Amino acid sequence: MSWPFAVLLCLATIAGMEAFAYAAHRWVMHGPGWFLHASHHAPRTGNWELNDLYAVIFAVPSFVLILGGVQLGWWPGCTWIGAGIAAYGAIYFGFHDVIVHRRLAHRYVPRSPYMKRIVQAHRLHHVVETKEGTVSFGFLVAPRPEVLKAELARRRHAGVRAARGR
């Protein structure tokens, strides 16, 4: 397999993972997988939450594809698809767990319009602590915050957590 095609396959996988992550977040995590994801919409009391098991679950296909492509004689593209899944996982971890939720200490402050938008969209996702009524399921692509706020208002703020101190 040529290097340009391999890199293109990896990049296409990263882009495709955003669509997969949106669908998994909206219809699995906020559906039958809520028993794991609910911990992510509640205040965390420690370093880990049940929702972290999704990282392990989503790492399995990446691991299997890389192993198959490198060691088991599968189509070489499997390696690059697995690498794309792993790269998306690393991007997701950096954005979601480090920048948004600050699970690792850092001094980064989002300044670009894109980063401000994506962080605010994710925070608006978290104002709803119930399975239903949440907005913004993407991680790297999200609607403008004004659109999300209007949607929350349209839903009469159903499931929105009370302000702290109340």
Rank of each mutant, 00 (worst) to 15 (best):
L140R: 01
M29K: 03
H126F: 10
R102Q: 15
V119F: 01
I91G: 12
W3D: 07
V64Q: 07
A121Y: 01
K116I: 08
W80Q: 11
W34L: 03
Y114I: 04
A158G: 08
F93R: 02
T45C: 02
F5G: 00
G77T: 08
E146Q: 13
H125K: 10
L104W: 12
S112P: 03
F58I: 09
S2D: 15
L9D: 01
W27M: 00
H101G: 05
H96Y: 06
R26Q: 13
G138R: 12
A153V: 02
N51P: 00
L36H: 06
I81Y: 04
L140W: 09
A38K: 15
F58N: 07
H101N: 08
S136Q: 10
V98G: 01
I91S: 06
W34G: 03
R144D: 14
G31H: 09
S39Q: 07
L9P: 00
Y22E: 06
K131F: 01
E146C: 01
A163M: 05
K149T: 12
A86I: 04
V135E: 15
A105Q: 12
H125M: 11
H40V: 07
A6R: 09
G69W: 11
V100H: 14
P110C: 06
C10Q: 10
V147K: 15
G46S: 09
A87S: 15
W27Y: 15
Y88L: 06
H37I: 11
I118K: 05
G159V: 04
H30R: 09
H125P: 07
R117D: 01
F20W: 13
R107A: 13
G31N: 07
Y108L: 15
T134Q: 11
V119T: 11
V60M: 14
F63S: 05
V64D: 00
P145Q: 05
V109W: 02
E146K: 10
A21W: 13
I14W: 11
V147T: 15
V135Y: 08
Y22H: 14
G16M: 08
I57R: 01
A150W: 02
Y92N: 04
P143K: 08
W48H: 07
L9Y: 12
G73D: 09
H126T: 10
W74P: 02
S2Y: 00
G69Q: 10
L104V: 12
E151N: 04
H30V: 05
G94A: 09
H30M: 08
L148W: 01
E146M: 02
C78T: 07
A158C: 02
G138S: 10
L11P: 02
T13L: 09
P61I: 10
T45H: 15
A150V: 01
R102A: 14
R144V: 00
R161T: 13
E18H: 09
G33S: 08
R161D: 02
H40C: 04
W80Y: 15
V56M: 12
L8S: 13
R144K: 13
A12T: 02
A121F: 00
V147L: 13
H40P: 02
A142N: 12
H25W: 03
A21K: 00
A105G: 00
A24M: 11
G31M: 07
F95T: 01
Y114K: 00
T130I: 04
A23E: 06
A86F: 14
W75Q: 14
A153R: 15
P4C: 12
I81H: 06
